[in-house]
Design a protein around this nucleic acid. Structure first.
Ligand SMILES: [Mn+2]
Ligand SMILES: [Mn+2]
Ligand SMILES: [Mn+2]
Ligand SMILES: [Mn+2]
Lengths: 221, 221
DNA sequence: AAATAAATTTAGGCAAACCTAAAAAAAAAT
DNA sequence: ATTTTTTTTTAGGTTTGCCTAAATTTATTT
């Protein structure tokens, strides 16, 4: 039986999980930035998580989740994404306003609750941001998606995911009418600043910055 | 704008609300018993709630919620009961297994979440235990219901509510096949121990103790 | 009206989860 | 190879919400 962890512990575990998707390792400062706490607090928690065998950690070294830690992380990610799907599909929330609420709901402890919710939602495989939802065993589908910057010109694609949920980003996407499921095609690439001219949903044309293009994931069609 | 309160503060407020439904006042020991904390902890919290103008409290005296405190309490009760309704009607939980989960869900903060949930559920007026659900302004329907002990003999009635959600009670009710919505009729009253012989759903007959009869609310039909 | 019992509060502590400031270690620059 | 900068940890505090034990107040008996 898995023990229960505090909401704070769960947030640390989940954030370590996401950060280590890159290089496999996470640093104290990185985690401090995403959790919005001071590095000293991160060190405190790392000691607790190590004592509970959830992270591999040695002082002054990078760290990563243990197998057990990864299992816990996937459980939280599953809850987060299922709740997001519920909020959008059943409660008519916009996909840009569900993250904060799911951040709270993901800490509700009942296993039966989440499995019944999964069933009620008909076992969705992707959340409203295009991220895959782990099943009750922690397995999830990988998405075959690429960064918009890697898409060839004149090739139609569908937006599957955004690499961040920051409010400024979501605001910009809303303004440009880009959403998960939008069809986008690169009409022109500008070498000067690497900005892109896009055709969105076959209708309107918009120019987007390199910064924006590097957080948009698409699936070529 | 209402400030946000911690889950612990909310639990105190909600429990004071329920306890003061009787005499209008609550004592330290009563609250300690329902919250499952020691009396000294209750005193601690009462000072904090008084500082926030949520309770009227003077040392060594009984206490009660302020108008503001009652408003907060109704908001929590609303969330608790809407979530219970959701769990039973949408996620196929039994009405005897939703209380604990709602105890957690009631502390999720988003106002929009709860109003959208209300709408998704089609504005239910009673929770699975027969308790009325406050609307978004804190108003709720009173139920015209009486204690089973007050029901005249040979008068058909419907079970509307149980006065407690303790596990031993729910277990007993399950065993006797008594549930919210069951039809019950008193066939005979025994003066010796005030036990009652009941006809349940017009089918089976069962004898119930005085203790049980005083937590069962019914609506005569 | 005391004496006793029960209820409540005060005093002092503890664990979780954060903080700031200072020390130590590791990495980068000279 | 030093020196400097950056990163991380340690040391010592704070707040919240709980605890036990002792003191105080209120209620009940005798
Ligand atoms: Mn969270
Ligand atoms: Mn998401
Ligand atoms: Mn609760
Ligand atoms: Mn209920």
């Amino acid at each position: 039986m898995l023990p229960n962890y505090s909401a704070s512990e769960e947030n640390y575990i989940k954030n370590i999980y996401h950060l280590q998707q890159g290089t496999g390792y996470v640093t104290t400062n990185e985690l401090a930035a995403t959790i919005k706490a001071k590095p000293a607090s991160i060190t405190d928690m790392l000691k607790k998580l190590k004592a509970k065998k959830l992270v591999h950690y040695e002082p002054y070294k990078e760290f990563q989740l243990t197998v057990q830690g990864k299992k816990v992380a996937l459980g939280i990610v599953r809850k987060h994404r299922l709740w997001e799907y519920f909020l959008v599909e059943k409660l008519s929330f916009g996909w840009d306003e569900v993250h904060e609420i799911a951040e709270e709901l993901e800490h509700i402890t009942s296993k039966k609750l989440i499995d019944q919710l999964d069933s009620f939602l008909d076992f969705p495989r992707f959340d409203p941001h295009g991220d895959p939802i782990p099943d009750s065993n922690g397995k999830m589908n990988a998405v075959q998606q690429i960064l918009l910057t890697e898409l060839p010109e004149q090739k139609k694609s569908v937006v599957t995911m955004v690499g961040s949920q920051s409010t400024p980003l979501l605001e910009l996407l809303k303004h440009k009418s880009i959403t998960i499921g939008s069809t986008v095609e690169i009409k022109k690439k500008f070498d000067f600043d690497e900005s892109l001219e896009l055709l969105i949903d076959g209708e309107n044309t918009a120019t987007i910055s390199k910064q924006l293009a590097t957080v948009l994931f698409v699936k070529p069609v």
